[in-house]
Design a binder for these strands. Structure first.
Lengths: 193, 193
DNA sequence: TTCGCGCTAGAAAAGCCTGTCTGTTTGTTC
DNA sequence: GAACAAACAGACAGGCTTTTCTAGCGCGAA
């Protein structure tokens, strides 16, 4: 608990929101587990919604770094890196299932489910974050010499796989998704399986 | 309001849960909009969770009928019907966006997002419903003479497309998904685009 | 050492949540 | 027409929600 209150609030929110959802997580619980006073929260954030936005922002930062690690900082050919992504997702699933917390899918799409109304700040933030992550895929697709609009199909497959892994509690979904992506890539250019 | 109270409760729940989410919808609002007394609700359902389960059940029934209409009751060849599915999803998106209610994605996966803990009755019900819907796709895949395990990939693509259409508010996602499915099918057997 | 700032604890406001209970009215069936 | 079951309205309990407020503690800087 040596870090600063604002930081503890964001980290604790990240954990609780992704585990129990947004509406189901009360502010009192966040404060208790972060060891922060109520006034301090409202000094840093105008409302609970703003705290949610901050937690989503942090989530996007973490996931972006992970995704860039997989897609950019690798010596394998770009199309192979895209296939690797689904093996890494599968490993991520296994790791978070084994720990104290069970795999809870993507916090971004979970937020989209709870805040479905377009125009709501949280919904709009989710859309922006997803678009941002999508552009990383787009870069890798371009690097592979493939048409850029291919990345939309990859995003659908990636989030679809994360979603169904959450529902089914089965990492084999990622292998199915990998086969799908393999078919998508093979359609345009020959790719080693 | 001539239908029976139990029916009105389920229909109103279906509408409110899918529009505003489960935790965000209080039973008082359901009761007011259904025109039903509180005691009547608790005569028919032991708790709010049971009402949620009933609403999900109804949702599955409706979506199953719709899906069977697209995949079974059609004179087009089975692989073509699978491709048609994504055109019909796109039309469904457009229809529900134009009405009073905006498109809110799949109520099943929205429920999975709010009730992420495995073992929770709602989570388990969602998993069972998704499996049931998946078997309809499996039948059509078999009918087309394709390997049955292909249906898992189609399910990922379908739910992924619904999810991203909800986030992006853009029906073009379904065309992307259709291209993906086309690639999946083409990988195994020649299919007219 | 003293000032000021960020933090703490704790209380309180105002409202919504689920679930229970009482009494009345309506509708159906013998 | 009497009897019975179901649905009605409305109040109430107990708890949780977000947000605001007061009062004091502790630490770093001047």
């Amino acid at each position: 608990m040596q870090s600063k209150p604002r930081e503890r609030l964001i980290e604790t929110s990240l954990r609780l929101f992704s585990t129990h959802g947004f509406h189901a997580t009360g502010i009192d619980r966040i404060l208790a587990e972060a060891g922060v006073a109520k006034m301090t929260l409202y000094r840093h954030f105008r409302s609970k919604d703003e705290l949610i936005l901050a937690a989503l922002d942090r989530y996007e930062t973490i996931f972006r770094a992970w995704l860039e690690g997989v897609l950019r900082h690798s010596d394998r050919p770009p199309d192979q890196r895209i296939l690797d992504l689904f093996d890494k997702l599968s490993a991520w699933f296994g790791a978070s299932t084994l720990r104290e917390l069970t795999f809870q899918g993507s916090m971004l799409t979970n937020a989209a489910a709870e805040f479905g109304q377009p125009g709501h700040p949280v919904h709009d933030a989710v859309a922006a974050h997803v678009r941002g992550l999508s552009s990383i895929l787009e870069d890798t697709v371009s690097e592979a010499g493939l048409p850029a609009n291919l990345s939309n199909r990859l995003v659908v497959t990636m989030f679809g796989a994360v979603l169904l892994a959450q529902v089914y509690r089965d990492p084999r979904v990622f292998q199915d998704a990998r086969l799908t992506v393999s078919a998508i890539l093979r359609e345009t250019a020959p790719v080693p399986a």
